[in-house]
C-alpha cells in the first residue's frame, strides 16, 4: 500500500489517510483480508504523529472499512459486493462535485458537461 500525505495541505493528515485508504479499498488496490501496516510502522513511514494514524484507523474501523484484531495490525474488512459498489459511487460523486460547481460557474448546460465527460472516458479507453 502506498500512501502519500501532505502535512501542509490544510486538509488534516488523518483525513488524507482515511480518504486514500477508502479509495484503495474501493478500487481494489487493497483487497479484503489484506493487512495494513501497524500504527507505529505507518507513522514512521509517513513521518507523521502516530496519533494521526490512530485517528484515521479509528474512523475507518467505525466505517467498517478496516477491522481491528487484538495485538495485530488492522485488516481490510470483507464486505458484500453491494456495499463496495456503493462506496465506489460515493468516491466518484465526491470527485465530481467540484466539476459540477465549475460547470455552473462557466454557465454551461449539464448535457454539454456530460458529453465532455463521456468523451474523456472514451479517450482513456483508447
Amino acid at each position: 500500500m502506498i500512501l502519500v500525505v501532505d502535512p501542509h495541505s490544510g486538509i488534516p493528515v488523518y483525513r488524507q489517510i482515511v480518504e486514500q485508504i477508502r479509495f484503495s479499498v474501493a478500487s481494489g488496490l487493497l483487497e479484503p483480508g489484506e493487512e495494513i501496516p501497524s500504527t507505529r510502522a505507518l507513522s514512521a513511514k509517513l513521518g507523521v504523529n502516530p496519533m494521526t494514524v490512530s485517528k484515521a484507523f479509528g474512523l475507518l474501523e467505525e466505517d467498517g472499512v478496516l477491522e481491528r484484531r487484538p495485538g495485530r495490525p488492522h485488516v481490510v474488512r470483507r464486505r458484500r459486493g453491494k456495499s463496495i459498489h456503493a462506496t465506489r459511487l460515493e468516491q466518484l460523486e465526491q470527485a465530481l462535485r467540484p466539476v459540477a460547481t465549475k460547470t455552473r460557474q462557466l454557465d454551461l448546460e449539464p448535457d454539454t458537461a456530460v458529453q465532455i465527460f463521456r468523451r474523456l472516458l472514451e479517450d482513456e479507453e483508447r
Binding site: 502535512p7 501542509h8 507513522s43 514512521a44 513521518g47 507523521v48 504523529n49 494521526t52
Partner: peptide, 26 residues
C-alpha cells in the same frame, strides 16, 4: 516523532518554522 512513539514523551516545541511544526505536532 520517534521519541513520541518509543518513549511516549510529551514534547513542547516552540518554533517560527511553521512548516516544520505542522509536520509533527498534534
Amino acid at each position: 516523532l520517534e521519541l513520541l512513539r518509543e518513549d511516549e514523551a510529551t514534547i513542547l516545541v516552540s518554533s517560527h518554522v511553521l512548516r516544520d511544526v505542522e509536520k509533527v505536532v498534534d
